[in-house]
C-alpha cells in the first residue's frame, strides 16, 4: 500500500502543474455587452411593465368584465352561426397547413446544407424562409386582406405563408440531421440528389417532419382564430364584433368554443405524435 502513496508524493514533487482558472475569463468587450444588456432590461421593465397601483386598480375591472361575460350565450341561432364560423376557422387552418407543408418540402430541400442540389443557392431559399417567418402572421393577414380582399381566402394564404416560415426551417434542419451513412452509400453507387432525398432523407426524417407538421397545425389553428380580427375570416371576426358591440356573453361563448377546439386538436395531435416513431 505504501508504494503508490510514495510514488504519488514523488509525482507531486517532481512536476509543477499549472491549473487553469475555475471560471473562464470574460473579454472586456463581452463584459461591456453584458452590462449593456442588463441596463436595457432594467430600463425596459421600468418603462413598459405595469405598475403595482395600475394592477391593483385593474382587479375590480376584471371581475366586472367576468360578471358581464357569464353565463355564455346559448341562443341556438347564435350557436349555429358560431359553429359555421368555427368550421371555417378549421378549414383555414387545415387547408393552409396542407398547402404550406407541401410547399415547405421543396423549399426545405433546396435550402438544406449538404442535401440541396444548389449548394451555392441554398442561402436564397433560407433567406426566403426567414422572410416568411420574420413577418408576423397578422401583418401577412393585413397584406392578403388588401390584395385578395376580406374573408377566408386571405386567412388561408396567411396560414400558408406562416407554415412555410415555420416548416421550411424545421424541415431543412430535420433533413440536415438525417443519417449521413446511407446517403454516402447511395451516392457511391450513382444515386442522384433527388433519389437520395426520396430514398434516404425523407424516410429518415419522417418522424421529425410529421411532428413539425402537427405543431404547425396546432399553431395554424391558434393563428386562424386571431386572423379574423383583421378581417381574414374565421371565428375571430365574430369575436371582434362581439367585443365591439359589448356582447360579452357571446364573446365568452366564442372564447370557450375556441378553447375546446384547440384542446381537441392538441389531444388528436398528441395521439398522432405517439404513433410516429
Amino acid at each position: 500500500m505504501s508504494a503508490p502513496i510514495a510514488s504519488s508524493q514523488k509525482l507531486q514533487k517532481a512536476q509543477k502543474i499549472e491549473i487553469y482558472s475555475r471560471f473562464p475569463r470574460i473579454p472586456a468587450l463581452h463584459f461591456a455587452v453584458y452590462v449593456g444588456l442588463g441596463a436595457l432590461l432594467i430600463a425596459s421593465i421600468g418603462q413598459v411593465s405595469p405598475s403595482p397601483e395600475r394592477l391593483w386598480d385593474g382587479i375590480p375591472r376584471i371581475f366586472n368584465l367576468m360578471d358581464r361575460m357569464l353565463p355564455p350565450e346559448t341562443d341556438p341561432a347564435f350557436l349555429v352561426r358560431m359553429g359555421w364560423r368555427l368550421l371555417e376557422t378549421l378549414q383555414i387552418a387545415i387547408a393552409g397547413t396542407v398547402f404550406g407543408v407541401i410547399l415547405s418540402l421543396p423549399i426545405a430541400w433546396l435550402s438544406a446544407r449538404r442535401i440541396s442540389p444548389l449548394p451555392f443557392g441554398s442561402f436564397l431559399f433560407k433567406g426566403l424562409v426567414s422572410l416568411f417567418r420574420t413577418i408576423p402572421d397578422l401583418v401577412w393577414a393585413l397584406i392578403f386582406v388588401v390584395t385578395v380582399g376580406l374573408g377566408a381566402v386571405a386567412g388561408t394564404m396567411t396560414i400558408v405563408v406562416d407554415t412555410i416560415g415555420f416548416c421550411g426551417r424545421f424541415f431543412a434542419e430535420a433533413m440536415e440531421d438525417s443519417d449521413q451513412e446511407p446517403q454516402v452509400a447511395l451516392d457511391a453507387i450513382g444515386a442522384s440528389k433527388f433519389s437520395i432525398l426520396m430514398s434516404v432523407v425523407l424516410p429518415d426524417a419522417m418522424p421529425s417532419l410529421i411532428n413539425t407538421t402537427l405543431f404547425a397545425l396546432e399553431k395554424a389553428i391558434r393563428s386562424s382564430v386571431v386572423l379574423g380580427l383583421v378581417g381574414a375570416g374565421g371565428i375571430g371576426q365574430e369575436l371582434k364584433s362581439a367585443f365591439d358591440l359589448f356582447q360579452y356573453h357571446k364573446a365568452s361563448a366564442i372564447i370557450l368554443s375556441i378553447f375546446v377546439i384547440v384542446l381537441i386538436m392538441e389531444w388528436i395531435t398528441d395521439r398522432l405524435r405517439e404513433k410516429v416513431k
Binding site: P182, V184, I189, A191
Partner: peptide, 28 residues
C-alpha cells in the same frame, strides 16, 4: 453504375424494410 459499394456501418436506411433497402441498389 457498374460498381457495388459496401461500407463499414452498412449505410442502410433504418426506418425502411430490408427489402426496400436492397431495392435501393437499383438507384442510379
Amino acid at each position: 453504375k457498374q460498381i457495388g459499394f459496401v461500407f463499414q456501418n452498412h449505410g442502410l436506411v433504418k426506418r425502411l424494410s430490408a427489402h426496400t433497402n436492397v431495392v435501393h441498389g437499383f438507384l442510379g
